[in-house]
Design a binder for these strands. Sequence first.
DNA 1: TAAAAACTGTTGCATTTGCAACAGAATCAC
DNA 2: GTGATTCTGTTGCAAATGCAACAGTTTTTA
Lengths: 228, 228
Amino acid sequence: MQPATVKLLQKTQLFQGFSAPELARVLPPVSVGQRTYAKGQLLLHAGSGTQEIGILLAGSAEAVKTARTGAQLLVTRLKPGAVFGDVLAGSHAKSPVAITATAACRVLFLSYRRLLQFSAEDAPLGRRLLANLVAEISDKYFLLDDRLNLLLQKTIRKRVAAFLLGAGSEAGSAPFSIPFTRAALADYLGCERSALSREISRMAAEGLLEVQGRTFRLPAPEKLRAQL
Amino acid sequence: MQPATVKLLQKTQLFQGFSAPELARVLPPVSVGQRTYAKGQLLLHAGSGTQEIGILLAGSAEAVKTARTGAQLLVTRLKPGAVFGDVLAGSHAKSPVAITATAACRVLFLSYRRLLQFSAEDAPLGRRLLANLVAEISDKYFLLDDRLNLLLQKTIRKRVAAFLLGAGSEAGSAPFSIPFTRAALADYLGCERSALSREISRMAAEGLLEVQGRTFRLPAPEKLRAQL
DNA sequence: TAAAAACTGTTGCATTTGCAACAGAATCAC
DNA sequence: GTGATTCTGTTGCAAATGCAACAGTTTTTA
């Protein structure tokens, strides 16, 4: 395995805390190999289950949910280091999303079953990997929960306020950037792009926030909080 | 341990598939004992982390989320057999909810750390328990994801349609009941109770559904689907 | 059993939002 | 560099929703 790949794996939450030798030891028993995909190929079918955990080593991909109406909703963009199928592998659920390569991809697959069945001598390493997996799944749960709380807010203004207070909580009244375009933010907050723009403009006019593109500044967080 | 308790535990997803002797074998190393709570006492503080998984053996409790505004939002009602703290134990996150006893409670606590560190001889049992835990967390993830999809619908009508199609998918055009009061359903769907009532009435008037209390019937599911 | 509390449907009205269309700015591909 | 594509803010208007108040019903509690 390439040193660059090892570095990449070490940066994932799944292998967090694993030294290179530990990785070399833990990987062979759980790996079921790498696969490559051309741009446009499916890494994961919607509606399918899987027992394998995928780690994107190179390339990029998109998780897309297709509504009953046929409308396509972008769920996530996957970059190298991204882990997918982890929540799926542990349950008997079917994937609500399809994952498609947006560029040529290389993916490392791990077997969930083998991950559970570590041999006695490698048990300590296996445990750590398993604990990381559980932590990864749990964290995804809380990310979803956070978003759900935003969606429960009844007005766009409140959603924006709650979102920005969360995203900028560490920045205080210093500027910070968000990882969304306006259109993507509208999707995330479950509202219309134009309606979101309108509301952000209004809030800026009222002095609740300052905006420039993806960069925001909250001159008076307490005023924003008062909007909730 | 009481036979009734064993029966109860066997019905939980966490101990699904465990025979009574297996339970007796697996429980001692992971249990950190039972605690009792009086009505009104806190089983879990909001904002706290935990390394323990709680299983409600007797009594009842409520998970409540307190918004920044102080508004209280009921998240779940816990009945005997309910498992809580499972998602929390595996991550370093803090609890977004507080769990309060609504009646005198008895709770069995398991140590997540010990669950990870099963001895070699009990490893197979430990693995199964761990797999069940992962399945439980993953299932909770998908439940959340389902709800999120409802909340992403932009009109109440669409949320109701999507919800009923999901809830009644097995019933076909036979009547089925939902586990929510109107007020609770409004919370679940993230809308106003009165607005929900209004919309359900309209949909009934249009022949999209038949209602009586918590019991619904979908005479023509395809018409409902067309609303999405 | 009676009183209290909780649940439900209805309705008028003000507010919010989706939708559609457009034009300018920014970004990307070639 | 330039043409094409995507991103963004704005605005008018119709539709949807929150909010508040009320009355009838059901359920809980004492």
